[in-house]
């Protein structure tokens, strides 16, 4: 082999090595989180891409749908085994006396987070219309057991669709409010309001605050579970009433507060 040929081949080998090293530095990620990272597209791309869903859940990652279901069923089973002396609330349908609100990951303390590892736990919120208060069950998903179960009055987590539906019924069947809603709906849409499914509804919890109206105060909203409803037509016209109802008593509270 001629010496220039040897030099050239050596140079070629070094170049190949450099290329391989560059490829490693460029594409081999430094750590697990970087490895998991989704490469961002160039801004000129018109639309984004959807990243792959999580396979399992750990740490502060939110509960999966399965975890929510498991937690709720553990909580309901536990509550079913508890004896509650309170009578059913006559204003509430039998199947809604104990209303399952939602389940989300239990927020651990900062001290726990600092330790670096903790069990998967769920907060399962239920509203107990028999006693007018919130039951908060902390469900340990690792053990399948209830870590704690507390009952508290005064806290009012957001409404479920069941509760919003019931609030709409209270408005529709109230002589004055029902009439106003029907008249407004007919005026805006040219059709009669026969069924709750014809209107768009958003339902907010209503509490008694220092600025609350005397009607809301009188209804003890906060101690009771009250809903304020916002209506609009399917084509987006606003119905200019903001009725408040008391879901604990099944009574109408006010039309325009």
């Amino acid at each position: 082999m001629r010496s220039t040929q040897v030099v050239l081949k050596n140079v070629a080998l070094v170049a190949l090595g450099m290329l391989a090293a560059f490829a490693i530095m460029r594409w081999l990620p430094t750590d697990r989180s970087a490895q998991a990272q989704q490469e961002l597209l160039m801004p000129e791309q018109a639309v984004g891409v959807v990243a792959a869903p999580a396979k399992g859940r750990t740490g502060t990652e939110p509960l999966s749908t399965d975890e929510q279901k498991t937690a709720a069923s553990i909580a309901l089973k536990y509550l079913g085994s508890q004896r509650v002396s309170a009578k059913d609330n006559p204003a509430v349908p039998a199947d809604q006396q104990l209303e399952l609100l939602f389940a989300e990951r239990h927020e651990e303390s900062k001290a726990t987070y600092a330790r670096g590892a903790w069990e998967r736990r769920a907060d399962v919120y239920l509203y107990d219309y028999r006693r007018d208060g919130v039951i908060l069950n902390v469900v340990n998903l690792a053990t399948g057991k209830i870590d704690s179960s507390d009952f508290a009055r005064g806290a009012q987590p957001p409404l479920t669709q069941n509760e919003i539906d019931r609030a709409v019924q209270i408005v529709m069947t109230h002589p004055q409010a029902g009439k106003t809603l029907s008249q407004e709906f007919a005026r805006l849409t040219g059709t009669n309001l026969k069924d709750a499914s014809q209107v768009e509804v958003a339902g907010f919890i209503q509490l008694t605050d220092p600025s609350s109206s005397p009607l809301v105060r009188a209804a003890s909203c906060g101690s009771h579970r009250c809903a304020q409803l916002l209506f609009s037509t399917p084509s987006g016209e606003m119905v200019s009433i903001t009725p408040i109802v008391d879901l604990s008593t099944g009574l109408f509270v006010s039309l325009n507060n």
């Binding site: 989180s33 998991a36 999580a54 396979k55 502060t60 990652e61």
Partner: peptide, 14 residues
Amino acid sequence: DRLPCASAAFTINE
């Protein structure tokens, strides 16, 4: 330094 999440779906690392 330890992230309290592990999966790419809940990690933002850019």
